Simulated scan of single mutants.
Amino acid sequence: PSGVARLLERLREVGEDEQGRALLARDLAAHVAALDDPDDVDELLDRLRAAGADEQVTTLAERLPAVGHFALFITRGGNREQFRLGREPDGSAAPSWTWNDMD
């Protein structure tokens, strides 16, 4: 992801907004394969957000829990309140519970 993030930044720096839009039109967030480095993912989220690619930010953020980056999903995906009790295996927000719910 850092290579993609750097490319988006460079295109913006040199005024190649049209090329940046063409790159974003390829739905980068859905196709970025390597999400193992949270710093790289964080950088890519920044670049996508700066480029106004809010849908791609959401798409990429939704992929984060499956690759072990739940904390980044919570902080950068804007999901802190919805997932304050964690996540169910199906990806939905964990419901609140009490000790009386324990069997």
Rank of each mutant, 00 (worst) to 15 (best):
P1N: 12
S2K: 13
S2I: 11
G3N: 15
V4N: 00
A5Q: 08
R6H: 09
L7V: 09
L8P: 03
R10K: 12
L11W: 06
L11H: 03
L11D: 03
R12W: 05
E13A: 15
E13I: 02
E13Y: 06
V14L: 10
G15M: 12
D17H: 15
D17P: 00
D17Y: 11
D17S: 14
E18W: 08
G20D: 00
A22V: 04
A22D: 12
A25C: 01
A25K: 08
A25E: 13
R26G: 04
R26W: 02
D27A: 11
D27S: 11
L28A: 09
L28V: 15
L28W: 11
A29L: 12
H31N: 12
H31V: 13
H31K: 14
H31C: 07
V32G: 09
V32W: 04
A33R: 15
A33I: 03
L35N: 13
D36N: 13
D37T: 08
P38V: 05
D39G: 05
D39R: 15
D39A: 15
D40L: 01
V41W: 01
V41L: 05
D42W: 04
E43D: 07
R47D: 00
L48H: 07
R49G: 11
R49H: 14
A50F: 08
A50T: 10
A51H: 07
G52F: 09
G52C: 11
A53C: 06
D54P: 01
E55N: 09
Q56W: 06
Q56A: 06
T58H: 08
L60E: 11
L60A: 13
L60M: 12
A61P: 04
R63L: 14
R63G: 12
A66T: 10
A66K: 14
V67G: 07
G68M: 04
H69G: 10
H69M: 09
F70K: 04
A71Y: 01
A71W: 00
A71P: 02
F73R: 02
I74Y: 03
I74P: 01
R76I: 07
G77L: 03
N79V: 02
R80I: 01
Q82H: 14
L85G: 00
G86F: 06
G86E: 07
R87Y: 02
P89G: 10
G91F: 08
S92D: 12
A93R: 09
A93I: 10
A94K: 13
W97I: 08
W97V: 11
T98L: 09
T98I: 05
W99T: 13
W99H: 10
N100A: 15
N100P: 00
N100I: 06
D101S: 13
D101I: 02
M102Y: 15
M102C: 03
D103K: 13
